[in-house]
Design a protein around this nucleic acid. Structure first.
Length: 831
RNA sequence: GCGAAAGUGGCGGAACUGGUAGACGCGCGAGACUUAGGAUCUCGUGGGCGCUGCCCCGUGGGGGUUCGAGUCCCCCCUUUCGCACCA
């Protein structure tokens, strides 16, 4: 008799449509503002909002969102009130470039992309709160982005200054660093130059120490924390002043000239003050303001030529480490404050104006770059650190960077180099020649973009009043529709072309004035979006203080490692600045952050250029959203990523079919209580799945579910309701549609996601009465014994030696030692 | 160059504080069932051999510690990721 024919097969598509409608109708995902205000046990589950590219949602987005959604669903089933919003990071160069390529205006293209994205996001089975969503291009949103700029401006954290940018002389536009490919413009291939433009900066470096310190207590993925630490790059060292030496022009330049110290001096930063006796020359960045002061007339032509070439070079090419060192002698000298000797001053592009003081003391004996430079130009190399096998006179074949004691260092000879830095700094400090100093690699955040597709920076320039912030009441400064938004011949933002827009009266004096025509960086849009979600429907303030107090900081943030530094650091900075302004009661935005891994396809990461990008739609169509979600979580450890292979879907699909087949029809399930090994397996499975989801170990949680279902179905026995019913909520975070459908068929009237539905377990019942114990002889497995839990060593030993195979190895030899691990193993050592 | 992570079957990947290596899944093999499907169900599946022995070998390579090492220590090789002329 074929029972199967009577059974209703699993139809993923139909179930998805049914439950999407029910969840929306009952508001399972959706919350009103009142719900958010009155919620008990609030849990803010955040994921990184996507930028709505025209290609649509790709599998990498879905991987990220699904992993985060599983966590959110699980918290909800545990009884938390989970807020899980999504939005669109739709401003920025990516979006604008795509619009340019397509020839469609972004004001037209982006909304249609958002429609498409929304459609896709509704299918993947995430429980988004569509009542609280943000779109960074909405004036109701970027009004507050501009407002944040004003707050920072007011606090002195926003300032305008000149800075180098990449400039394409053919396209006549500024390029972002990522648009410069091998020193050339990505669009036309013309070599890129460096230009200086006046730009707005946020003084994030003022917060460097705090941004670093807080890393010690926030609960983040280690790798992400370390990436921020490296990016902030705190370095301890000293600033040391080198007096400029003036040479009298003599007939013979090679004769020692009369030297006198000049009150003018050049300051360097070094992390190795211990090596100062080995500083045999100084190098300035080509842009260093003192270059002309020290350059002699004879050298001026050469120096000017080098400077111009260096400054014209694009920033990316200049920082290439593998190119040969270049540089020019200025003709000037300064005095090494430790040795009293005068040393030549060079300029070279390997010294960067943006770090330290833009000037270095070169210690060729103990710095590889300086060694290379000195060798190339025949400059003096002095050893000041001797390693264990060296003497003060040992020749140097390369820079010695190992440990050792100081040599050729006058009164400091014999001191351990590592501990000498402080001593030498103090010695210099006592003579006003230097001081201890901490430096950061972190740079101020340049937020100006000479582009169209972003929020205009809310500043008005007046000849009389200077840079005047737009009054808050006048916000938003709406981005005007500009038909041709391409960068033009003027080389500044396309907004500079719209005179009717930028000509405004000065808010202070009423005189004719001009708007800032640059827009702000996309990273500013995304630096605060999570603050807005709960207050997304509030018009008269950036956020509601009660909602902020209730919902923030974010409880769990899951996102890609590619944002380990920029986005995550910027949002920490903005949060801190708003905290200091008294606007937020906390200074760290994300209590917990976990990175997810990267999906690999055919051995390399997915990218458009490789043509291996996977679009989820067809897979969802074919296998169902539940199956696709679950497969993504099964293919590897979530926090490490894994290999996407079509064939892998089969296994998860089979599992879900079997699950359906086991539960449906529910009235045919047996009524016996769970018992014996099945009961134990059930409790052990609940425990394992609960622990694994909490740690985002989704792949092993799914394996445990499969194992349990296999155990229930073993030998084709009929399942009992008590055995399979708890399995349904366990599967629910991964496969929410089929789970709610099965739950209903089991006779429940509430969705799994609107009640506390996560099953508990009894730890005692998860443990078997009997254990299998391993018998080793000399560390090699010889037998296994099944014994009651807690069997004593003596009993186990007696049973072990009675075993035939064990006896083979033990008999005739003397037992020297017995290692016994209760309920685990016994190891008999014979000799 | 600096920093970090990782190397386990044909493949994706399991393995708690050192204690049965290969869970789970894919693929593959054999069989069952069936008017044949992208089925389903059973059994098998690291390698070797004197092949039915819980025998030998086996977690990138080489040493070491230990009763016992995928796991700990040292050296080397490879891959991936992040930062990179940061003084």
């Amino acid at each position: 008799m074929n029972q199967r024919a009577e059974r209703e097969p699993w139809d993923p598509g139909a179930i998805e449509r049914k439950w999407q409608a029910i969840w929306e109708e009952r508001g399972t995902n959706l919350h009103s503002d009142d719900d958010l205000r009155t919620a008990t046990r609030p849990f803010y589950n955040l994921m990184m909002f996507p930028y709505p590219s025209a290609e649509g949602l790709h599998v990498g987005n879905m991987y990220a969102f699904t992993g985060a959604d599983i966590y959110g669903r699980w918290r909800r089933m545990l009884g938390d009130f989970v807020f899980e919003p999504i939005g669109f990071d739709a401003f920025g160069i990516h979006s604008e470039n795509f619009a340019l390529k397509k020839g469609v205006h972004p004001m037209e293209l982006i909304p249609s992309n958002i429609v498409n994205f929304t459609r896709q996001l509704r299918r993947i089975g995430a429980m988004y709160d569509w009542n609280h969503t943000v779109d960074t291009t909405d004036p109701g949103y970027y009004r507050w982005t501009q407002w944040i700029f004003l707050q920072l401006f007011r606090r002195g954290l926003a300032e305008k200054r000149e800075a180098p940018v990449n400039w394409c002389p053919s396209c006549k536009t500024v390029l972002a660093n990522e648009q410069v490919i091998a020193g050339a413009c990505e669009r036309c291939g013309t070599p890129v130059e460096q230009r200086f433009l006046s730009q707005w900066f946020f003084r994030i470096t003022d917060y460097a120490q705090r941004l670093l310190d807080n890393l010690s207590w926030i609960d983040w993925s280690d790798t992400t924390r370390r990436a921020q630490e490296n990016w902030i790059g705190r370095r301890e060292g000293a600033e040391i002043h080198f007096p400029i030496a003036r040479r009298k022009v003599t007939d013979d330049r090679h004769e020692p000239a009369e030297v006198h110290a000049d009150p003018h001096r050049i300051t360097v930063f070094t992390t190795r003050p211990d090596t100062i006796f080995g500083a045999t020359f100084m190098v300035l960045a080509p842009e260093h303001p003192r270059v002309s002061d020290v350059t002699t007339d004879e050298q001026r032509a050469e120096v000017d030529a080098y400077r111009q070439a260096a400054i014209a070079m694009d920033l990316v090419a200049r920082k290439k480490t593998d190119k040969r060192k270049t540089g020019v002698f200025t003709g000037g000298y300064c005095v090494n404050p430790a040795t009293g000797q005068d040393i030549p001053i060079w300029i070279a592009d390997y010294v960067l104006m943006e770090y330290g003081t833009g000037a270095i003391m070169a210690v060729p004996g103990h710095d590889e770059r300086d060694f290379e430079f000195a060798t190339q130009f025949g400059l003096l190399i002095v050893r000041v650190i001797a390693g264990p096998d060296d003497t003060a006179a040992s020749p140097l074949e390369g820079a010695y960077i190992g440990p050792g004691v100081l040599v050729n260092s006058d009164r400091f000879d014999g001191t351990d180099a590592a501990s000498a830095s402080g001593t030498i700094t103090e010695w210099l400090e006592a003579r006003s020649l230097g001081s201890a100093r901490v430096n950061f690699r972190l740079h101020d955040w340049c937020i100006s973009r000479q582009r169209y597709w972003g929020p205009p920076i809310p500043v008005i320039y007046c000849n009389a009043c200077g840079a005047v912030p737009v009054p808050e009441a006048d916000l938003p400064v709406v981005l005007p529709f500009v038909e041709d938004y391409r960068p033009d011949e003027s080389g500044i933002s396309p907004l500079a072309r719209v005179e009717s827009w930028y000509r405004v009266p000065c808010p202070q004096c009423g005189a004719e004035a001009r708007r800032e025509t640059d827009v702000s960086d996309t990273f500013l849009d995304s630096a605060w979006y999570f603050l807005r979600y709960p207050s997304a429907n509030i018009d008269n303030a950036i956020f509601d203080d009660d909602l902020i107090a209730k919902w923030l900081p974010v409880d769990m943030y899951i996102g890609g490692e590619e944002h380990a530094v920029l986005h995550l650091l910027y949002s920490r900075f903005v949060t801190m600045a708003l905290h200091d302004a008294g606007l937020l009661p906390f200074e760290e935005p994300y209590t917990r952050f976990r990175k997810h891994g990267l999906l690999i396809k055919d051995g390399s990461k997915m990218s458009k250029s490789k043509g291996n990008v996977v679009i989820p739609d067809a897979y969802i169509e074919e296998w169902g959203a539940d199956c696709f979600r679950m497969y993504l979580m099964f293919l590897g450890p979530y926090q490490e990523g894994g290999d996407f292979r079509d064939e892998g879907l089969q296994g998860v699909s089979r599992f879900l079919y079997r699950l359906w087949d086991t539960v449906v029809p529910a009235d045919q399930l047996g009524a016996e209580p769970a018992s014996g090994s099945i009961e134990r397996a059930l409790h052990a499975t609940i425990r394992k799945v609960t622990e694994d989801i909490g740690e985002l170990r989704y792949n092993t949680a799914i394996a445990a579910l499969m194992e349990y279902l296999n155990a229930v179905r073993e030998g084709g026995r009929a399942a009992n309701r008590a055995e399979v019913e708890p399995l349904v909520p366990l599967v629910a975070p991964f496969a929410p549609y089929i789970a709610d459908e099965l739950w209903q068929r089991l006779g429940h009237h509430q969705s799994l996601f609107s009640t506390i539905s996560w099953p508990g377990f009894d730890a005692d019942k998860a443990i078997a009465d009997d254990v299998e114990l391993v018998v080793q002889v000399n560390g090699k497995l010889r037998s296994r014994l099944t014994v009651p839990r807690g069997t004593s060593e003596d009993d186990v030993r007696a049973a072990a030696v009675a075993d035939g195979n064990v006896a083979r190895f033990v008999d005739g030899a003397s037992v020297r030692k017995v290692i016994f691990v209760p309920d685990r193993l016994i190891n008999i050592v014979v000799g």
